[in-house]
Design a protein around this nucleic acid. Structure first.
Length: 276
DNA sequence: TGCCAGGCCTTCC
DNA sequence: GGAAGGCATGGC
């Protein structure tokens, strides 16, 4: 067990729609990372973290929850560029950008298109249960998300059985492309965002929104613009800006290198404000 | 029942 | 290069 300082908002970071494979059990969150399962529990001043594998746990947690980054600088920068963002950023105080595994992120966000969060999570869990490694942790069974190698023998109809609907052929092709080295997911780390977007979008089932989410959540490229239905609503209601092109132009010129984060704050604010 | 979901593809013009 | 329609599935 390790303790880290309670300097981020555990609940909103985990539940704001960045990740799909987590669960809440009593007062603890269970999150399934690439190679282990971790439990996080909030205390007064600390977050207690346990795992089935505690090797390098602190380092892994710092990386996953992006705890070494200076978010104050980012938030100040965004507010300086657009004072209207103040309320959204205040609301999202303590929100971190989770640093996810690229392969799982690609699969997750291809499934996410025109879909709902519970359904996305269901499909990912079905895939993991059949093909991922089983982990026993404190009396419960969990399944890690499989690697692309572990999915290489799946057919299109196998994916259909995991309730992904019309996205079955996209997943099949993408997994095949990675296994055939046509899609090099490691190369993307070193690419500029614009080039990485073009590269990802050459694969069917990956459009601007999905590609942006992949770059934002797996590759920590924060200068992307995942304009979805919520952001469109936000821009229309508060800025009177409509249309994908106009929104992109606005976010690019105003928010600059942190536009992806600005959008994430907008999204969190717009989507969750009504729940309070 | 009918509508829609953190879109994207295809088929038109 | 842009608009319109279709798309599996499940929840309300």
């Amino acid at each position: 067990m390790i303790k880290i300082k309670n300097n981020f908002d555990l609940n909103s970071t985990i539940t704001c729609g960045q990740i799909f494979r987590y669960l809440k059990r009593d007062d603890e969150f269970i999150v399934i990372l690439k190679d282990r399962v971790i439990s996080l529990k909030e205390d007064k001043d600390y977050i207690e973290i346990r795992s089935n594998d505690e090797n390098n746990l602190e380092e892994i947690v710092n990386d996953y929850f992006d705890l070494n980054r200076d978010y104050e600088e980012i938030k100040n920068d965004i507010v300086k560029r657009d004072s209207k963002m103040k309320e959204a950023i205040e609301f999202s105080k303590g929100l971190k950008m989770i640093h996810q595994d690229p392969f799982e992120t690609i699969i997750s966000y291809v499934i996410s298109q025109n879909n709902r969060v519970p359904s996305i999570a269901n499909s990912l869990n079905l895939i993991a249960k059949d093909h991922g490694k089983k982990v026993l942790f404190e009396g419960y069974e969990y399944y890690l998300f499989p690697s692309y190698d572990e999915l290489k023998n799946l057919s299109v109809s196998d994916y259909r059985n995991y309730k992904v609907g019309f996205r079955d052929k996209y997943l099949y092709e993408i997994v095949k492309s990675i296994n055939d080295s046509k899609l090099d997911i490691n190369k993307i780390y070193d690419m500029k965002s614009e080039d990485a977007l073009d590269y990802l979008m050459t694969f069917k089932g990956v459009g601007p929104k999905v590609a942006s989410c992949i770059l934002l959540f797996a590759y920590q490229k924060f200068d992307v613009y995942p304009t979805d239905t919520w952001v469109k609503k936000f821009m229309k209601d508060d800025y009177n800006i409509e249309g994908e092109a106009s929104i992109r132009k606005y976010t690019k010129s105003v928010y600059g290198k942190y536009s992806g984060l600005a959008i994430q704050y907008m999204f969190n604010f717009k989507r969750n404000k009504k729940k309070i």
